[in-house]
Nucleic acid binder design. Structure first.
Length: 482
DNA sequence: TGAAATGTTGGGGCG
DNA sequence: ACGCCCCAACATTTC
């Protein structure tokens, strides 16, 4: 039997915010007391435990959420362990009437939601999951034959034809909390690096949490969006939204993003093309998540058959040079160093470094996927897996296998003044712009004048572009024939 | 959400 | 004036 004072557990997952949270709103509307909780899940089979950079973000995001809940007079109850066990135990402990949450689309999450539903059903509790992590539910975007889309353009067109994502629900003005339950301290989760604390300066770069997400969106909408289509390709410009980590942790929902942009567009029709361009990027996020939902092996196995046989080389020393930004290709090294030092890399550069790893070095995309997973603050299983497979040519709607970025040309085209390289590869800073993307082509006296000694202060190119390109084409031909 | 090789065209230098 | 060559600029195709 249930009574009106039996609480509802609101289980925070990848929705670390209070605004636009339909599940929380529904819990409040039930009139029952609410227990907000977060489980640091260490026990669900198949889970990709968050990487080091992601853990740093998670810590601060949880701290921000906990503080916002405290301001409302409640407490975020944090526990650690198997999410299923911890939730079941907590529900029994307080005799909860139900568990509400936002739906998550990771392969292991869907199984977990199923198990929770079963357990709740058997013990007379309500288990409800609400949409909100995505704009459109995967079941709602299928082609004419009821199958998932495997090509982005028709996928996104179908999304745009579908009923518009509904308006965000307001943040609760007050919450009737269930008192008296305590959990772990955030520090006990040991999410922060120490010995050494390599993220000591990251608080100057990022503001994890809902307020930070709101600030970032506001900054983007008042400035960079106006030149997004072009600016987004130039890594030296601050022309992208930088919302990815906020989005990953659900500090802002895609619905909030969607409606903020549509509203901006309504008031500024001249921004239509820019807004559409940005929303199509949100569309790629959507596409990746839908793909992962339909094809749970996306993070591990080539989406396209045949790539199992790809003749990778996988040299450990080459991988290490790539990881440390020591390949001798300035745009690649700049990107890898930006990643290492800030937990982030500009998207254009992500494509360049990924193409370089898989095609110039012939190192399996999974090595890159793993490195990004550990080093990106916005590491996201769906985006990461889909992105790497896209670059490697094995993914859905992937770049054709013969599309091999020339890192020198990419640098010259998208970092034409060399500002990005100079920022992250300071040992090349004094080189004239003409040679900044190809130091090896500079005359000896120019190198000397810039204090550059190739092979000493800056590495010689790890591979020759032309030779590497030919080798990659030959490798791809070998699986195509088979 | 490429790059390189190959093909075509047209202006200009020059015998 | 003409043919020839060079080559930049652009287009097409190939990988």
């Amino acid at each position: 039997m249930t009574n009106a004072e039996q609480p509802i557990i609101y289980w925070f997952r990848r929705d670390l915010r209070l605004d636009d949270l339909p599940g929380l709103q529904a819990a409040i509307a039930s009139g029952r007391p609410i227990l907000p909780c977060y489980i640091h899940d260490t026990g669900t089979p198949g889970e990709w435990a968050p990487g080091a950079a992601s853990c740093w973000w998670l810590h601060h995001s949880l701290a921000a959420l906990a503080s916002d809940i405290t301001a409302l007079g409640g407490e975020l109850v944090i526990r650690s362990g198997s999410a299923l066990n911890e939730l079941v135990r907590l529900a029994e402990e307080i005799n909860a009437a139900g568990i509400y949450c936002s739906r998550d689309y990771a392969p292991w999450s869907e199984g977990l939601e199923h198990d929770l539903y079963q357990d709740c059903d058997a013990s007379g509790r309500e288990f409800k999951r609400f949409p909100g992590v995505l704009l459109f539910e995967p079941e709602a975007v299928l082609n004419q034959s009821g199958q998932p889309f495997k090509v982005f353009t028709p996928f996104w067109k179908a999304c745009l034809r579908a009923p518009e994502p509904r308006s965000p629900v307001p943040a609760p003005a007050s919450i009737y909390f269930y008192p008296g339950v305590t959990g772990a301290d955030i520090d006990d989760l040991e999410l922060l690096p120490r010995n050494p604390d390599w993220a000591a300066h990251w608080r100057d770069l990022w503001q994890p949490g809902e307020a930070g997400a709101r600030n970032q969106l506001q900054a983007f909408l008042t400035r960079a969006i106006a030149n997004y289509s072009e600016g987004r390709n130039h890594p030296a410009q601050d022309a992208t939204s930088r919302l990815s980590a906020h989005m990953h942790f659900g500090e802002i929902s895609p619905r909030q993003l969607w409606h903020a942009l549509r509203s901006l567009q309504d008031h500024n029709p001249e921004l239509t093309a820019e807004v559409d361009k940005f929303l199509s990027q949100v569309g790629w996020r959507e596409f990746s998540h839908h793909l992962l939902h339909h094809f749970p092996t996306l993070p591990e196995k080539p989406f396209r058959p045949g790539f199992d046989e790809f003749p990778w080389l996988g040299s450990p020393t080459a991988l290490e040079a790539w990881q440390h930004g020591q390949t001798g290709y300035p745009i690649v090294d700049a990107g890898m160093r930006e990643l290492w030092q800030t937990g982030y890399m500009h998207n254009r550069v992500r494509m360049i470094v990924a193409s370089f790893l898989t095609k110039h070095l012939l190192i399996p995309w999974r090595a890159g996927e793993n490195w990004f997973w550990d080093t990106l603050v916005d590491a996201d299983l769906a985006n990461n897996a889909a992105g790497w497979q896209w670059v490697a040519g094995s993914g859905a709607d992937a770049a054709p296998y013969f599309r091999i970025f020339n890192p020198t040309l990419q640098g010259e085209r998208f970092d034409s003044e060399g500002d990005y390289v100079r920022r992250w590869v300071p040992e090349l800073a004094a080189l004239p712009t003409r040679y900044i993307h190809e130091p090896a082509s500079a005359p000896a006296e120019i190198l000397a004048a810039a204090d550059v000694e190739l092979g000493d202060t800056y590495p010689l190119p790890l591979v020759d572009h032309r030779e590497a390109r030919e080798a990659a084409l030959a490798a791809y031909r070998s699986i195509r024939a088979a």
